[in-house]
Amino acid sequence: MPDPALLRVEGLHAGYGRVPVLHGVDLHVDRGEIVTLVGANGAGKSTLLRTIVGFVRASQGRIVFDGDDISRIVPERAVRRGIALVPEGRMLFGPLTVEENLRLGAFARGRESAGHGSDLEGVFALFPVLRDRTGQTASTLSGGEQQMLAIGRALMSRPSLLLLDEPSLGLAPKVIAEIFGTLGVLREQGLTVLLVEQDVKVALRHSDRGYVMRTGTIAMTGTSADLMADDDVRLIYLGAWHEAALGGDGTPMTGDAR
């Protein structure tokens, strides 16, 4: 029987230089799933995504994608392999136009980018506002439009796995709703999504399962519904502490101090 998991991370250790960030991360994302990764700043969420695509080298453990060990992949190969990262901060080509950014998204597909025009149409169908901005440089877009362009650029590579790093960062609630609304459409198109998000409520509402990361390891996992019902998660990430347990200095109290 084939492995239902499209992505499987096993005992992953990684870090920057001599500073370790990930201490044995285990997680998997099944085909067609939307999985959310939550956790405090510095827990290693972004580092995990950056390690999966090869910006950060794994020092121990394995990353298996679609049955192949890709632990030593480099980013320019990962996208060819079918993994597209929408990075934190978007990393668009600011001085280049919206259309050029999207064309660059299809760069990895090389000669078989014949379906390029229809892919552009697909992105415009998802984010109609980009259609009116094709000739504008990416740096002139609003934050929400930039995020849409970053996702559109990633989709142009026709990935099977989409990694989204903090797509809601700095955006208005209405724009966040629009962006998360597209996740369902993408899933119907056969995409698998691993999402890192600080807006835990929105993220869990739009995903099937979730993992909670704490200081470089997975602290908790479960279906999104279970996690949303969990007291720890509610307390720390869902703002329940606002009403219940705000510490004297405005920081949330930890689980033990409840």
């Binding site: 190969r77 060819r80 660059l104 998204g105 760069f107």
Partner: peptide, 19 residues
């Protein structure tokens, strides 16, 4: 286009598959 993209950012370029 790849050369102009590389001039903007090496990391972004690698992300879209540019060597």
């Amino acid at each position: 286009l790849a050369m102009r993209a590389t001039a903007v950012s090496h990391d972004s370029s690698r992300l879209v598959g540019i060597d």
